[in-house]
Amino acid sequence: MRQAEYQHVKAERQKMKNSSLYNELIANRTRGKQRHYNLTRRDAESIRFYRSGQWKQIRDYRIAYDQYTCQCCGNNYQANRLTADHVVMRKLLPSKQQLDWHNLWTLCNRCNAVKQQLEIKFQKEGKVNQLKNMSKSDWKKLILEKENIKNAPAPFV
């Protein structure tokens, strides 16, 4: 990365960290809302991944980059109602690609829940290769069909 680009990215990060929405996001992450899910459903490897400093930094950057807007339904939400979701499931990726922010997009809790249901359905039907090749626009189409949302804004891809 050239020095000028680095300085620009560094300045953007600092600007983001000074925003009230970013501080709200950090505060909500530390309140332990994921504790029950982690104790009952998530495997140890996933817990380590999602608690890592690298993940938290990339997750928060992606949500701020998408301007706290769900990339599926297009609605703006408070930071605690958004998730940085892997487009291609993290478990299907090599470890080096799991932190690639280009494979992340910001989803509201509702759209993320629908996507998770669809992922489980595809896995049960043995469509793992299809899951590996899904794009953001493919997911958006499926999620909006499932929710019957009409007149959604165009994706920010």
Results as ranks from 00 to 15, higher is better:
Met1Tyr: 02
Gln3Ser: 07
Tyr6Cys: 05
Gln7Asp: 12
His8Arg: 14
Gln14Tyr: 11
Asn18Tyr: 06
Asn18Val: 05
Leu21His: 10
Leu21Thr: 02
Tyr22Gly: 05
Glu24Phe: 04
Glu24Pro: 09
Glu24Ser: 09
Leu25Asp: 00
Ile26Asn: 03
Thr30Ile: 06
Gln34Asn: 01
Asn38His: 03
Arg42His: 00
Arg48Trp: 08
Tyr50Ser: 09
Ser52Lys: 12
Ile58Tyr: 11
Arg59Pro: 09
Tyr61Thr: 14
Arg62Tyr: 10
Ala64Ile: 09
Ala64Tyr: 13
Gln67Gly: 04
Thr69Tyr: 00
Cys70Thr: 04
Cys72Asn: 03
Asn75Met: 04
Asn75Gln: 07
Gln78Phe: 03
Asn80Cys: 01
Asn80Gln: 06
Arg81Ile: 00
Arg81Ser: 04
Arg81Asn: 02
Ala84Asn: 03
Met89Trp: 15
Arg90Ile: 10
Lys91Phe: 10
Lys91Gly: 15
Leu92Val: 11
Leu93Met: 15
Lys96Glu: 15
Lys96Met: 12
Gln97Ile: 04
Thr106Pro: 03
Leu107Trp: 00
Leu107Lys: 04
Leu107Thr: 05
Asn109Ala: 06
Asn109Gln: 06
Arg110Ala: 02
Gln116Trp: 08
Gln116Asn: 14
Phe122Thr: 11
Gln123Ala: 15
Lys124Tyr: 09
Lys124Met: 14
Glu125Phe: 07
Glu125Leu: 14
Val128Arg: 11
Leu131Gly: 04
Met134Gln: 04
Ser135Gly: 02
Lys136Glu: 02
Asp138Glu: 01
Trp139Val: 03
Trp139Tyr: 00
Ile143Thr: 02
Glu145Ala: 08
Glu147Thr: 06
Asn151Gln: 12
Ala154Gln: 12
Ala154Asp: 14
Val157Glu: 15
